[in-house]
Amino acid sequence: MKLLLTLTLFSGLALQVSATPISFDFADPKGVNTISFNLDGPLESISGTAKGVSGRVQFDPKAPENTTGTIDLDVSSLHVGNPRMKGHLHGPQWMDVAKHPDIQFKVARLNNVETTGNITSADIVGEITVKGVTRAVTAKTTLTYLKGKLKARMGPRGQDGDLLVIRTKFSIFRNDFGISAGQSNEKVANEIEISMSIAGQAPY
């Protein structure tokens, strides 16, 4: 009996130690996931949004520092209100959607992790690839783990599951990614401020 109890305890412990991270899918059927960008230029501030978010993030609530994954953005979903500007943005001189249809953000790990309740604050360390150019990125981020909240979000016909909300803000420079590098600086800012609030779902 003692042996059985010990074995049960050890197997339970082993299960906890080797707990696999939860894989969250960021293709949001509710259309909430939005990445917004702002270029505060000398002539005009250009703001826009992008909704074509997809990708997967592996998150372990017991070891958030091991978070990895990839967030993809469909470049054709980049939107600004002025149709002429949007045409330029998608065109070969700027984002060149035809040749570079995706922007990819790879999460390598989290540093300086602090968890309070279901909210984890950390520095997200990864790489961003824009127009085929990859650069390292570190950004302050918060991850909110919402256990069992998927059904509440998706309605009565939705599946049971968990949600993970990632919020981050960081800047990149268009000159670093060959986005009309060194050109039109008097009209369009070099710094691109990116703000991301996205939710991923993990059905049971």
Partner: peptide, 16 residues
């Protein structure tokens, strides 16, 4: 030619 209407997702508390 478009306007952004602020929205709020009550479960995730994402403002979009």
């Amino acid at each position: 030619v478009t306007e952004e209407i602020p929205q709020f997702d009550p479960i995730t508390e994402i403002e979009y």
